[in-house]
């Protein structure tokens, strides 16, 4: 028989039993119920009965607390009983191997996802992302880039014309010129966008494709910085152990010019069909900005130097995912696009 002076401690003890409920099994639960809430000898029942003999002030305080504990305990027991019941039902009736209920999943276009990925990597090197018009003038597309139309180099750009001197840009390089005319260095930009070449659709050609142009111009940028920038990109985009090769080449808007190759991921350099037995894959054309381009765009080529690069995300996407035909990248076939859910 609990006497009132001990009622406070007794209640504290009973309150602790609430915590035991959540892990109790059915037997323990029944035991607890009798022990605490039993009609005849439940500890809490006894305390509540004894309250009548207390002074009004103490009765009010202890009564509130005892009722609070009783309610909490009853709720906890009821909840635990429900869980135990559910568990029983689950093990008996539910086949957990049945398919889940999903929502539709969407995905970025693989080429445009690669474009973003490339731009994000260059962002780490301080390049901002800009864009420019797809319909251009000959002046911006060719002339300002030190690419006169009467030079055989122009033949590699089979051009869609929109009118005299107006065309669909054959590369994103015209944005170089537009940006350099508008800003003085330091300039570090990447320019993704659609470009156009007058090539009929076949497994490896499309009249429309994506290109990413890059340009870094400042005082003191050298060939060593150029190599470091490209190297950083290649290792971040492919893998840290990717072998990169720089090879002399020719582009009218860069000098020295370089073709950047990475070791073929398929054969690790030993030669295979993907790399046409060379062990390497061309991934971009690049080089130090030609001083004539600076002159054409109002930048002092004695004070400033820089590098530029251009690459084709369509081809890189095809290499990365083993896609054999560029046309798949324009057909919007759900069976194709749904393979790129990430």
């Amino acid at each position: 028989m609990t006497t009132p002076p001990h009622a406070q401690e007794e209640l504290d003890l009973i309150a602790q039993t609430v915590d035991r409920v959540s892990t109790a099994d059915a037997a323990v639960l029944a035991e607890l119920r009798t022990e605490v809430l039993g009609r005849k000898a439940g500890k809490l029942t006894l305390i509540l009965r004894s309250l009548g003999s207390l002074p009004p002030e103490q009765r009010r305080l202890l009564g509130a607390r005892a009722n609070q504990i009783k309610q909490a305990l009853e709720t906890a027991i009821a909840e635990r009983e429900r869980v135990l019941q559910d568990d029983t039902r689950r093990t008996v009736d539910v086949d957990g191997t049945m398919p889940a209920r999903h929502a539709w999943r969407g995905a970025r276009h693989p080429v445009l996802a690669v474009v973003d990925e490339i731009c994000e990597i260059f962002k780490e090197l301080g390049f901002t992302r800009v864009s420019g018009p797809e319909a251009e003038t000959e002046d911006y597309n060719f002339t300002k880039l030190n690419m006169p139309l009467d030079h055989p180099a122009a033949d590699e750009h089979d051009t869609f014309y929109l009118g005299p001197g107006a065309l669909l840009r054959t590369h994103t390089s015209p944005v170089q010129a537009r940006v350099m005319e508008q800003y003085q260095p330091p300039i570090r930009i990447v320019v993704p966008g659609r470009v156009y070449r007058r090539d009929a659709f076949d497994p490896s050609h499309s009249p429309v494709f994506e290109q990413i142009e890059g340009l870094a111009v400042d005082e003191g940028i050298s060939f060593v910085d150029f190599k470091a920038g490209i190297d950083y990109f290649v290792k971040r985009f492919f893998s840290p152990d990717t072998v990169v090769r720089f090879r002399p080449s020719f582009f009218p808007f860069t000098e020295p010019s370089a073709e950047v190759d990475v070791q073929c991921q398929m054969c690790k350099g030993s030669g295979c069909a993907t790399c046409k037995q060379t062990g390497y894959l061309e991934i971009m054309g690049a080089g130090m900005v030609h001083p004539a381009v600076f002159e054409n765009c109002g930048i002092d080529p004695e004070r400033y130097t820089g590098y530029a690069f251009g690459m084709g995300p369509d081809r890189i996407t095809m290499l990365r995912h083993g896609i054999p035909d560029i046309r798949l990248l324009f057909e919007n076939d759900m069976r194709f696009l749904s393979q790129f859910v990430s």
Binding site: L125, G126, F127, T128, R129, V130, V179, Y183, Q184, P185, P186, I187, R188, I189, A216, D218, G220, F223, V224, D225, K227, A228, G229, I230, D231, Y232, R245, F246, R247, P248, E255, P256, S257, A258, M288, H290, P291
Partner: peptide, 30 residues
């Protein structure tokens, strides 16, 4: 610059180090 390319070409592009140096951020807004 055409002759500078000749020098680099004969020396071999792969002979140049690839070394990140401090850079200034772009003035061109995104």
């Amino acid at each position: 610059v055409d002759l500078i390319e000749e020098v680099a070409r004969l020396r071999g592009y792969d002979s140049f180090p690839s070394e990140s140096r401090p850079l200034r951020p772009s003035v061109v807004p995104t």
